[in-house]
Amino acid sequence: MAKVLVLYHSAYGHTEAMARAIADGVRDAGGDPTIRRVAETVPEEQARASHFKLDQEAEIATVEELPGYDAIVVGCGTRYGRMASQMAAFWDQTGGLWQKGALTGKVGAAFTSTASQHGGQETTLFSIITNLMHQGMVIVGLPYSFQGQLRLDEVTGGSPYGATTIAGGDGSRQPSDTEIAGARFQGRLVAETAARLA
C-alpha cells in the first residue's frame, strides 16, 4: 500500500478541496493518504482582513516527515504565475533532504488553483515540479486519459502537468465536478505509480 502525502497551501479553500479529492483518488487505488498543509506566513490580522480560510482541518507538515512517504503531491494557489510563497518557504527548508537524496526515486505530483483560465496554471505547476525534480522525484501528471480536460462545453481547469481549478477573481467559483474528478484521477494514478515502483 503506497503511503501518499498530499501537501498543500490554500488561502481560500479551493486548493484544500482539490487536496481532499486527490486523497480520495489515492484511497480509490488502495493507497494510504495523509493530508497536511504548510504553515501560513501571512500575519493573522492581515489574513483575517483578507478573509483567508483559517479553520482548515489538516495539520501543519514538517520537513522531517517527508521521507516517510512513497509519494508527495504538492498543491498551492498561484501567485503571479508561480508557486505561492508559503509553499516555497516550506521547500526552501528541504536542503538537508536534497543533500542526502532522501526523496530520490519517490513519486511527486503537482496541482494548483488560479483566479482565471489564463492565470498561470501551467507555470505554477512547473514551479512546483522543478522543486520535486531537484529532489530526484519521479513526476506524475494528469494525462489525457483523463478525458475531462478535453471538454469544450464548460470552463474547466486541467493540464497534462497536474490537476487545476479556476477560482474566479473574487474566489466565488468552487472546483467543478470535472476539476474534482481530475484531482481524483491524478491521486489514483500517483498511488498506482508509487505501488509499482515500490
Rank of each mutant, 00 (worst) to 15 (best):
M1L: 11
A2D: 07
A2C: 06
K3C: 12
K3F: 13
V4A: 12
L5N: 04
V6R: 13
V6L: 12
V6E: 01
V6H: 12
L7F: 11
Y8W: 06
Y8V: 09
S10W: 05
A11N: 06
G13C: 10
T15N: 05
T15R: 04
T15S: 07
M18C: 06
R20A: 02
A21Y: 08
A23Q: 05
A23Y: 04
V26P: 11
R27A: 15
A29G: 05
A29N: 07
G31K: 04
P33H: 04
I35G: 00
R37V: 06
V38W: 02
V38F: 07
V42K: 07
P43N: 01
E44W: 03
E45D: 09
Q46C: 02
S50C: 12
H51P: 10
F52E: 00
K53E: 03
L54G: 07
L54Q: 02
L54M: 09
Q56Y: 03
A58D: 00
I60L: 09
L66F: 06
P67V: 14
Y69N: 05
A71R: 01
A71G: 01
I72S: 04
V73P: 15
V74F: 01
V74A: 07
G75D: 01
G75E: 01
C76S: 15
T78M: 09
R82M: 15
R82D: 12
A88K: 08
A88V: 13
A89R: 01
A89G: 04
W91R: 13
T94E: 00
G96M: 11
A102V: 13
A102G: 02
T104Q: 13
G108D: 08
G108P: 05
A110D: 03
F111D: 11
F111V: 09
F111Y: 13
T112Y: 01
Q117W: 15
H118A: 06
H118G: 03
G120A: 05
Q121G: 00
E122H: 05
T123W: 15
T124V: 10
F126T: 08
F126K: 12
S127A: 05
S127D: 02
S127M: 09
T130V: 13
N131L: 14
M133L: 15
Q135E: 06
V138H: 13
V140L: 08
G141W: 10
Y144T: 10
Y144W: 15
F146W: 06
Q147N: 09
Q147I: 14
G148R: 03
Q149V: 10
L150D: 00
R151P: 02
D153Y: 07
E154V: 09
T156M: 03
G158F: 01
P160L: 08
P160F: 05
P160K: 04
Y161P: 10
G162R: 06
T165N: 12
I166E: 00
A167W: 00
G168D: 04
G168C: 12
Q174L: 15
P175R: 04
T178Q: 07
Q186C: 11
Q186N: 11
L189N: 13
L189M: 13
L189C: 09
V190K: 11
A191I: 11
T193V: 14
T193W: 08
A198D: 15
